[in-house]
């Protein structure tokens, strides 16, 4: 019995100490990690969807609350003036979640572009939603009725990959909803 107690105590103590030291390390490194994740995962998409800016959208990011969810919004600022915003939403694709970075132009309220951040679609089929021929359809598209052609909209789905296309579209619709909800708060954020 004594042996067992010693065993339990030693093991638990080692685990506990590990936990504490790792948590400390986590706290120390947390900001750096976030920075890195944004730089390497989001930055390319953000830069491609925000057309006209001279700031660093990642550095100037801000969080907003919408319906109890927190959305990280990346601003495009030109000459000190907020020209557009971008944020990430997701829709359900064939192979799982499809992450879409959606950019809005504040001036005319249209989509300035979209970029696929994460997806696990079938290579050669669903994965073609990341192709420029598909994503470019959204650039300059009005931010009100984004629909696939089969649903009566004007978006040409990727041939043979309706689910993946539907996923992106639903993500974008989702983003439009958020954009509309926050439209008025943006100005306060970066002025």
């Amino acid at each position: 019995m004594k042996e067992e107690i010693k065993m339990i105590v030693v093991l638990s103590l080692i685990c506990g100490l590990s936990g504490i030291s790792l948590a400390a390390l986590k706290q120390v490194t947390a900001p750096a990690i976030e920075e890195q994740v944004l730089t390497y995962v989001q930055a390319p998409a953000i830069n491609s969807v925000l057309s006209d800016h001279d700031n660093n959208p990642i550095k100037d990011r801000k969080s907003f609350d919408v319906d109890g969810r927190t959305v990280m919004v990346f601003p495009a600022i030109h000459d000190g003036k907020l020209t557009g915003v971008a944020f990430e939403t997701s829709g359900k694709g064939y192979g799982g979640k499809i992450g879409v970075m959606v950019g809005f132009s504040l001036a005319d309220g249209v989509l300035s572009g979209i970029g696929i951040t994460t997806m696990k679609e079938t290579p050669g089929l669903g994965s073609r939603v990341a192709d420029l021929s598909y994503t470019s359809q959204f650039s300059g598209h009005a931010a009100d009725s984004v629909k696939l052609k089969k649903d009566g909209g004007d978006i040409q789905a990727v041939a043979g990959a309706t689910i993946s296309s539907g996923g992106t579209v639903s993500a974008i619709q989702n983003a439009i909803g958020i954009f509309n909800a926050l439209k008025n708060s943006f100005g306060k954020g970066w002025s």
Partner: peptide
Amino acid sequence: MIITSGLTLFSIGL
């Protein structure tokens, strides 16, 4: 958070 993770792991080990 440090306490939480310490305790959690402690309890996992335990």
